[in-house]
Design a protein around this nucleic acid. Structure first.
Lengths: 123, 123
DNA sequence: TAGTATCTCCTACATATGTCGGAGTGAGTC
DNA sequence: GACTCACTCCGACATATGTAGGAGATACTA
């Protein structure tokens, strides 16, 4: 099972599929923020490349339009991103946490949640 | 102050400089793992590009060799990575934490540390 | 059925990243 | 001073990513 690496724009396409479910290229394109929206064909190229990477697949066809669906889960993709990042931190989560704290994105609630989750999950 | 985006290999070059201090291209190259080591000129190209991005600078010259030093800190670079990743998680740290837990990289000690750090820092 | 809207498919190109060879230059050595 | 070795500088090329136009196929519509 090959772990695909997705580019930023590819991830945004996937995000659209994960959030809105199977969609046509047009629907995906319209999901993207208006500000600096990508051309229809740009989105299409990305979808086709994602299909080549087996990250999406054709689900069905409506009229002459293909409807695509995600072939990998959001969790798997996110997991891959985290693992990659962790690599730059020498595999240790602590320094990563420090940065989360510095950037003010981590709340005490988050930490409490994490603690509970960790306690529950196995040891 | 422009936030530079560093590629994976560029980050490994920076890592060498952060860890070993100012170095020549040769020294940086020899720092990289033997397994699949990059050619001298490949490293040099990266260093030159990093210089163009103002991430490293020439510190001095020994013989005819330039000695380079990091011009941005490891912390700043790591922070950038974390911020980028956070973007894919909608800016929320919680899901990121979940993945850390799943991948078994987060220990209760890490969490305790984080809690203390968070309490101390500001609010 | 003729026209129009929409979609796919193919192609092309710019920039970023990774890869590196070869020419030229400078430094130390005999 | 002539050699040799290491280093720099320049150029080249492959793949990945982002961008998009245009030709042709298809489907809806009057």
């Amino acid at each position: 099972m090959k772990q695909v690496r997705l580019s930023p724009l590819e991830l945004r396409i996937m995000e659209a599929l994960w959030t809105h479910g199977a969609s046509s290229v047009r629907e995906i394109q319209e999901t993207l923020p208006e500000k600096g929206r990508h051309a229809y064909t740009t989105v299409q190229t990305m979808v086709t490349r994602l299909e080549g990477k087996a990250a999406v697949r054709k689900a069905k066809k409506i009229g002459n339009a293909h409807i695509y669906e995600a072939a990998i889960s959001r969790g798997v993709a996110q997991r891959r991103l985290v693992d990659d990042l962790l690599g730059f931190f020498g595999g240790r989560a602590a320094p990563l946490m420090s940065h989360l704290i510095e950037s003010g994105q981590l709340t005490l609630d988050d930490i409490e949640e994490a603690r509970k989750a960790l306690k529950k999950s196995g040891k």
